[in-house]
Amino acid sequence: MRRRMGPRWIVFAVAGFVLNFPILSTLMTAFKGPNEVNRNASLWVEAPTLENFATVLTISDRLNVYYYLWNSLSAVLIGAILPMVVAFPLAWPMVRRGYGRSILFPIIVNLRALPLIVFAIPLYMMYATLGLLDTHLGLGLILAIVNLPLTLMLLVNAIADLPIELEEAARMDGARTGGLLIRVVLPLCRPALITTFVFGFITAWNEFLFGLMLTTSEAVPMTVGASLFFATSGGGVQWGVASAVMIVAALPPLLLGLIMYRRITGSMVAGAVKG
């Protein structure tokens, strides 16, 4: 029996519009010229122009959007991949042997509850001593620490969900702990690893506080760089250019999310056990 789908679609459309209004508004503003921005606040663009994007994407002597993108990308990749490298070998003994379950795990997970500003002053002084200020590695390391709790939590859950028989079978078949981790546990954790990578990437990409605090010129990330576009020629905020740079800054995590979405939801253990 066919249901009337009309009303349902209206609800979806309204919800979609309301929830995405800020994004739509920013997107439309990016296509408006400087005069139109002040006159026309509606979503409709009267005279669409790529002028704002051209301004953003052109390298000036003061601003270089490609440089900010590159800085972000290198710091974010460190910040997303390093926690997985650390957390995976930590998560397995936590789940299977109970090591660190009672003290280490809660401490790491509760890092997430702390306001990050708490780290600001000691971290700045530490970085200054170590020469990590204004470097990709320095920014990447602190992003890794920001991501570590969630990564560990997701991996602990993923490993706890793996049927223990798979590991027992591998042990019967001669796999030692290393081989077991690499040949059985790691491949089965792939969906969890992809999920943590995507979440870690997005969190790190959107990070502003440490980017502002720990970088000055060499390693300025996109989030901080974007803010520099807002007021270029002294005369207040250029809304069109600001919108265009926001769209450019939002594209990489958006694309990543779209590409990885299907993989996040997939499960690896289907068919492992039971008939």
């Binding site: 028989e165 798979l166 079978a169 089965l188 253990v269 068919g271 492992a272 056990v273 039971k274």
Partner: peptide, 14 residues
């Protein structure tokens, strides 16, 4: 040097 067949078979799904 023993082999075991598990109740759940425990085949490696990947």
């Amino acid at each position: 040097k023993l082999s075991m067949v598990f109740q759940s078979y425990a085949l490696y799904p990947h």
